[in-house]
Design a protein around this nucleic acid. Structure first.
Lengths: 246, 246
DNA sequence: AGCTGGATTTGCGCCGGCGCAAAGATCGGC
DNA sequence: GCCGATCTTTGCGCCGGCGCAAATCCAGCT
């Protein structure tokens, strides 16, 4: 694993370039970026550390500079539910902040990470001054809405195997890294996580993955999953007729 | 914009008040409202008529002036999925329009309705000119995201009975009308719809409602549902311990 | 290296909810 | 008032996936 610049020194080195990678700020003027930068700060998140906690007042916007963060909700019945995983350049916690509501979930670093944090009122001010940003925000949120809706529709699908396959496909798309054998999910993920993403049980996920591994569809070990034949997974996810490989 | 033909002949500036009821336009200046009004048009939607069709290019924003519209998606496997019901004053189809993507679902009037339609570029222009609108839009979308996320979390809950109860509770909140016996869903809804909202089968929904009716929890007839003891429903929805009345 | 706790696997039994099929109830139209 | 189209109810059988429990395995720590 290559260490990102400025990681070890314990010294946050805020880079405008990092901000530029955030979709929301694309095409923003230098001084506007400076404004954000000046108001916010870079923070280190050790693996397992929380960026924010479910129920806490949301007064900050977060953006991940490096690493991976899990957004997970504790339901009243005690069950956990994994909403999504955040990768580099993505923002999180912003919806709650914009809405003036408490964070709806915990944000936990699954690997050592670096986040950039700034107060919500800066974002508000920016939006007032630069309508582009607000418009870009609607686009971002629109994308979220669409993704959530498609995920909703998926949940309707009864077969658990399908749901797990789709969850895995999504992870591959978002966090896949090519290796010799296939595509690996580039951060540690437990079967429990996968279960909590798809609404299945830990047990069923374990069994299912084991079956797929026996079929040579995937490789897996503790917290690691590598997809050897992505297409085969898609066939299951989309319930295509094909019983053959590619 | 050229005057739209036909519909407006007898009506002087049809529903500027109707526009004011749309959250997105709250607090907007008179002339800005006029701009929207001039570019759009009011349309009648007979029961069963489509406001737009899944897959069609989304070049229009819609807002319901009166009636009720069902947004439902046809999945690749042929199944239908009810995304949501639209009530008076709510906007629909706007996410797709803003994102420049085809409509993701059909919009069908479930009762005789009236909608207001205007081209997306007007909305874009308005947003550029009035950041408030864009900001308000982010708020709206944020709310959608939150609602979808909570719905997602619900879907994880295994028990079908719970999911149905929650679907019903949501409908009551959104479209409940007080009557002598309880609260009635104020538009015709089939068990099929309920099934497609909650990811259950028509059959299971039917059986479940029958059981609830036997318990005096609800009244129902063809396309009509009246909740006699909302609290009892919530108890099921939230899986509270209480096995008693309210 | 040894220990400890989290992560994973696996077996077994049970039951809820779907699939299928057909009858019954209502509404709306003619 | 009759007919046809929906919408709704109900019976029966089957099976997938959960619940429970125990055994292993592995990573990180001291």
């Amino acid at each position: 694993m290559a260490s990102p610049p400025g990681w070890r020194s314990g010294r946050p080195s805020p880079h405008i370039s990092a901000l530029k990678d955030i979709a929301l700020f694309k095409g923003l003027s230098e001084d506007a970026l400076q404004e954000v930068l000046a108001c916010g700060q870079t923070e280190r998140l050790a693996k397992g550390a929380l960026a924010f906690r479910q129920g806490a007042p949301a007064e900050t916007c977060h953006s991940l500079v490096h690493g991976r963060v899990k957004i997970a909700q504790t339901r009243p019945d005690g069950g956990q539910f994994v909403i999504r995983f955040i990768g580099s350049g993505e923002m999180f916690g912003s919806v709650a902040a914009l809405m003036g509501q408490p964070f709806p979930a915990d944000a936990t670093a699954v690997v050592d990470s670096i986040q950039f944090v700034w107060p919500i009122h800066v974002m508000r001010r920016l939006m007032m001054r630069h309508p582009d940003i607000a418009i870009r925000a609607t686009t971002e949120l629109g994308a979220r809405v669409q993704e959530l809706q498609s995920r909703m529709a998926e949940m309707g699908a009864t077969r658990v195997e399908q749901r797990i396959a789709r969850g895995l496909v999504r992870l591959v798309r978002q966090a896949g890294r090519r290796t010799e054998v296939g595509i690996e999910i580039d951060f540690p993920i437990t079967r429990q996580d996968l279960a909590e993403m798809t609404g299945a049980t830990l047990h069923t996920v374990s069994r299912t993955l084991a079956a797929w591994e026996a079929d040579g569809l995937i490789d897996s070990s503790r917290r690691r999953i590598t997809v050897r034949r992505p297409h085969g997974l898609v066939v299951i996810a989309e319930d295509l007729p094909g019983a053959r490989d590619d």
